[in-house]
Design a protein around this nucleic acid. Structure first.
Lengths: 217, 217, 217, 217
DNA sequence: CATGAATGAGACTTCATTCAT
DNA sequence: CATGAATGAAGTCTCATTCAT
């Protein structure tokens, strides 16, 4: 589900390097002004290439948006993977993964917002590929939930597992896309509340989080 | 926090009527193609007005987007308000409100998606007004949570109340903006899982919902 | 050489009155913003008529400009005629006419500038009519010059009479159309220098003007 | 007091060359139809560029008008300077300059008319720059007059010098902007009368001009 | 490969004029 | 006669993309 972006240039290293320049510039511009209000000229200029050169590495402006979304997802995934514990009880790995995920989101706020707001501008096929990336990220949590069901450390409704995984992702990403509403909190507060809610929903047995734990009155 | 959209036409009834036409057409087009790929001519044509006539009721294309967002939020609020119980324990009113909210979202999927994807195209001031609408909707849930704290039927962490309200809104709205990921579920399933999670997070004492209740293993 | 501006309205008094309103508003607007940047709506509004009503008294925007030019010339001529001595030596009448003319110009600066800057926007036929008005005004001075040739009080080159008349008009009107360059002078200074130059050019015998008379060194 | 017109194109030679094309086309069109009735497309077409190409060399239609005015004034000044005697009595240099100026006007009638009729369409700042050009041209005559005062070959009222310079300019330029009234004369006749009047007003001692010299009375 | 000038379709908006009420 | 909403042609300007150098 990864779509090839064609390039006139043969040397793959050069392509990688130039596209990195383009992506770096475009991420910033798209986040700031949005896809449609950003011109290819601006992207070229900001990436240190000429107008024409950009089109040696990309076939259309939409390709750039696709590369940007891809790069963001790749970075998210990489960062997330890096801090995932590979062993232990699923419940602990979940708590760990959620925290890692939230911290990744915090460092990539603008990027996540960018995907939420601009991916609609992608052509259908590329949009599908981007959504597939999100499915893969969500899948990370799904897998842990299933592992928890298996090892007994979590007790989610089996049918609800996909949705719970989405809840984790969405309740984390809102730190980015509802930023305007959450100015009053700091990340730790946010994480405490969200983690508490999400883990409880997953039937996590051990409530060792820092926040006050509320037992229904 | 409501911004005036100027019109050349004086008769307020006519303005209302024509703007309704414009909004109806624009909602559809924006949802389908996005704000930037929709032309003013298309909007005019789809609303049965001439190009020039549209500009008798609106000063710019962005005004149309603002009217659209406003209309969507107004409809959401109206529908939500209509089905809100005015009395009873806060816990019951919350459950009721969440269900009502989710059903509203289900009927307004495209509209909510539209706001998520297109509001970035608004000029700053109008964007602020649209966000203020979302704040007001979120406030509905905040108030119930506070009432629950007061009448003892809910026990949210007082500091977490604003965030919990946002969780309710976001965990509902994902039915719209993650539609592509939730094709496998039906609304009732979705509501059961989300309601369960959210109410529990709010410290709702009586778990009378239909879903399986998970007590941490 | 006066072109009829058609009106749908039959009652000539009403036409006169309404056109006066239109002209009053248009003069101001044209002087301020120019013909092309003034909209018919603005003219209607400023004259207290509805958009449609204006077109009951005028067939086109250009008609309004024509009416404006006509009105300005008529006022100039009226004011000038009012203060023209009817008898006496031509030389005296000339001096008197030049002074009167200059004072008229001073009170009608914007109007004269308007004609200089906007008459190009007139349709050919109406432009011709406006130029004919200017010819008529120039003719006033021509006649006095010829009278002076006849009564011996002036001695212009007979062939130069038309040009000298234009010189009088232009050297007066520059008080309006070179206003930006003459900020440093007052009207009296200006009149003294110009009158001196013009009368001398017309071979005026009696140099009774207030200014110092310079005999070539 | 020269305003920079921005261009996307970096190569100054190309900018000069393309702008020359644009100016050539625009002068003709503006003179013929006026600024507002000329479309940017017509300018592009007449200058052999595409619509978009024009906007690589200019930021707005008004910029074109500004370039046109600038170019006209530059050409006037250049032509005038070329034929100015650098030495001799100021009185002779004045006569010489006036003649040169009048001949320049004769060759540039449409251009001068263009400035009179269209400069009102300029944005304020650019209008100021254009008027500054006219001030500079007028200044040429002012300087000669002052020199004449110094070398005794002219005896203008010192306070009247600026106005006399304007008289020279205006009494020359009327050959362009009153062309419709002067069809009956030829340039030589015109020059004779005007030169006579103007030099006399400047207190020029030696009346060696070709025209009949009239001594008052 | 790189450059950047050129293209031209098309976007938004304005506004003189009309005409039903 | 008066009103003012409606029309729609036309204008200015933008910008993704191409291609000669």
């Amino acid at each position: 589900m990864t779509i090839q972006v064609p390039s006139n240039v043969k040397d793959p290293d050069k392509v990688r390097q130039r596209r990195a320049q383009i992506i770096r510039a475009a991420v910033q511009l798209f986040a700031e002004k949005g896809f449609h209000k950003t011109t290819t000229r601006e992207i070229a200029q900001a990436s240190g290439l000429s107008t024409g050169a950009v089109y040696e590495y990309v076939a259309s402006k939409e390709d750039i948006l696709y590369l940007v979304c891809q790069a963001i997802h790749a970075e998210m995934e990489r960062k997330l993977m890096d801090s995932l514990a590979q062993s232990g009880r699923a419940a602990d790995r979940l708590r760990n993964a959620v925290e890692a995920f939230f911290r990744v989101i915090d460092t990539m706020q603008e990027d996540i917002l960018l995907i939420y707001q601009q991916s609609k501008a992608l052509p259908p096929e590329q949009l599908r590929a981007v959504l597939a990336d999100e499915v893969r990220i969500t899948g990370i949590f799904e897998q842990i939930l299933r592992a928890g069901l298996a090892d007994g450390s979590l007790s989610p409704d089996p049918e609800a597992i996909p949705l719970l995984a989405h809840d984790i992702v969405v309740c984390g990403e809102m730190w980015a896309f509802r930023r305007w509403a959450l100015r009053g909190m700091d990340l730790e507060q946010f994480m405490r509340v969200q983690t508490q809610m999400l883990l409880q929903a997953c039937g996590c047995s051990l409530e060792s989080g820092g926040g006050a734990v509320h037992h229904g009155g």
